[in-house]
């Protein structure tokens, strides 16, 4: 479904150039859920932004369903096939647009016709009733906002969903609701996920395989089972797992 080969992403020009991703390569099969884990500055979100064309300073090979993409231009089929959910639900919804406006504009852009009935269905699918349709973001909680953002991403009926820390701004009880919702949607629609997170437990819960990143490079790719069994190849991964389990008194 997704192929990333030898991806380099950089910001700025030399000598002040910052290389955010160095030679990253991975493949994600159709229907798979793949995780990208790392600490801040490891380049994990940058990869998603390069895939979607939000960053154009990259080189390497990115293919979605076999079709190569270049630079920052993406065509209609790409937008239909790939969608993204952002980290901060407070920043990813336009403060002056109602839920209705957000979804109807999206559906319109995707060339859908039966907009009214689709909005109702989308809201039901993400667990928000009709009562939410005409609310503005300031009338919604963080979890509800993220549900709207997910509905927006689903509106195009994509095959590949890129999730950029979708729950890190939420309380744990709300995080559980959103993670369950995402798992349900994937099962029902056969979606492919690429999920970025700093939280190993979240990725271990959601993903089949994951790549561990550090300083812009992929340290290793492992399965979720290997993660749970603490079978890491790289020392860095072991350290990360150790630190994530909790704090040991000195």
């Amino acid at each position: 479904m997704l192929h990333v080969g030898n991806l380099d992403v950089w910001f700025g020009l030399p000598p002040a150039q910052l290389v955010a991703v160095k030679g990253a390569s991975f493949d994600v099969a159709r229907g798979e859920s793949f995780g990208l884990v790392g600490e801040s500055g490891s380049g994990k979100s940058t990869i998603l932004r390069a895939i979607t064309g939000l960053i154009d300073t990259w080189s390497g090979d990115i293919r979605v369903a076999g079709e190569a993409v270049t630079g920052s231009r993406r065509d209609r089929t790409f937008h239909k096939r790939v969608q993204m959910v952002f980290q901060d639900p407070y920043a990813s919804l336009h403060p002056r647009h109602s839920v209705d406006r957000v979804l109807s504009e999206t559906l319109h852009l995707q060339g859908m016709t039966d907009i009214d009935s689709r909005i109702t269905r989308l809201l039901e699918q993400v667990g928000l009733g009709r009562g939410f349709r005409f609310r503005y973001p300031h009338q919604l909680s963080g979890g509800q906002r993220q549900r709207v953002a997910i509905a927006r991403a689903l509106a195009a009926e994509p095959e590949l969903l890129l999730l950029d820390e979708p729950t890190s701004a939420l309380d744990v009880s709300v995080q559980a609701e959103i993670l369950n919702l995402l798992a349900d949607l994937r099962r029902e629609r056969g979606l492919t996920y690429v999920m970025v997170s700093h939280d190993l437990a979240v990725v271990g819960h959601m993903c089949d395989r994951l790549a561990v990143m550090r300083g812009g490079e992929l340290v290793e790719i492992m399965s979720a089972d290997q993660l749970r069994a603490h079978q890491a190849q790289a020392d860095y991964t072991s350290d990360l797992i150790g630190a994530s389990i909790g704090y040991e008194r000195a």
């Binding site: 744990v172 559980a176 798992a183 939280d199 190993l200 271990g204 819960h205 993660l227 749970r228």
Partner: peptide
């Protein structure tokens, strides 16, 4: 709160919702 956390040590099919 405790049950709604995803776990690193074992597979949980569905997270408990508060």
């Amino acid at each position: 709160l405790l049950n709604s956390l995803p776990r690193l040590d074992q597979r949980v099919e569905r997270l408990a919702v508060l």
